[in-house]
């Protein structure tokens, strides 16, 4: 397997040649699985219409409020997951700053030991019988979401020798129109693995990468109970009221 040094050199070279990208560079070979899975052509500009202008609708019939607490999922056995209890909360807004209300947020993550409840995860770390690592909620009227969970651990993967993913929580988000669909990963501040990780580093703009990192917020922490992290999400702008700017238009 290739060394971290080689991967880090490739990351540095691509960040030099393609700087300032606010979204991941799909053709980012240091992430080896991307090599055969990225389109080679630029996406074709299209004007959204019909179903693209209307996001799917989810509601209270779809999501139980208890699904936002990942620490109570062991059902009848009643046991508690092991690890650092945290709350992760923030707002989902669109590219014009409007709250995305009543919309579905889905998360999934490894447990405190860095192990997923997934048959393909062969990392020899313990499975926590009291933690599944998946949650759902609906945003409130201010676009707010809130999950109570356990801080995930970093885990090894087989991209290269001694490769480790920084600790993260996967987020799946919808906006008010279909074009705003987003799946991403939230990271924790100060992770020493950031510089080494080709998935995180595929966003070549440093400020854009930083948008994936939550902030520790002591006001969210609760006395003798849990630690608080805040992470706000900005989707792309909605097209529902969008008019393509015309040449010579003052506005």
């Amino acid at each position: 397997m290739e060394s971290q040094e080689l991967i880090s050199k490739e990351i540095a070279d691509l960040q030099d040649s393609r700087p300032g990208l606010g979204q991941p560079l799909l053709d980012f070979a240091p992430y080896r699985s991307a090599v055969l899975r990225h389109p080679t052509k630029d996406p074709r500009p299209a004007d959204p219409e019909g179903a693209e202008l209307v996001a799917p609708v989810f509601g209270h019939s779809d999501v139980d409020p208890l699904e936002a607490d990942l620490t109570i999922q062991s059902g009848q056995s009643g046991g508690e997951p092991i690890g650092e209890r945290i709350v992760v909360t923030g707002r989902v807004v669109d590219g014009d700053g409007r709250p995305v209300r009543g919309q579905l947020v889905e998360i999934w993550q490894a447990n405190a030991a860095g192990r997923y409840v997934h048959q393909r995860d062969q990392h020899p770390a313990p499975i926590d019988p009291h933690f599944t690592g998946l949650g759902r909620c609906l945003t409130d009227d201010d676009g707010g979401y809130r999950f109570t969970t356990i801080k995930p651990g970093p885990y090894p993967w087989r991209n290269h020798r001694n490769a480790w993913r920084p600790a993260h929580i996967h987020f799946s988000l919808f906006g008010t129109d279909f074009t705003q669909r987003l799946i991403t990963q939230m990271y924790f501040p100060g992770d020493p693995l950031f510089a080494l990780d080709p998935i995180y580093q595929s966003i070549t703009d440093e400020a854009a990468r930083a948008r994936l990192v939550a902030s520790y917020d002591h006001h969210l922490s609760e006395h003798e109970w849990l630690l608080g992290y805040r992470w706000d999400i900005v989707l792309t702008g909605s097209h529902a009221t969008y008019v393509e700017p015309e040449d010579g238009d003052d506005d």
């Binding site: 998946l134 799946i183 994936l212």
Partner: peptide, 14 residues
Amino acid sequence: PTPGQTIGPFFHYA
């Protein structure tokens, strides 16, 4: 906008 990231290999249980 918040950047996207890969869905990864472990979404099947979620």
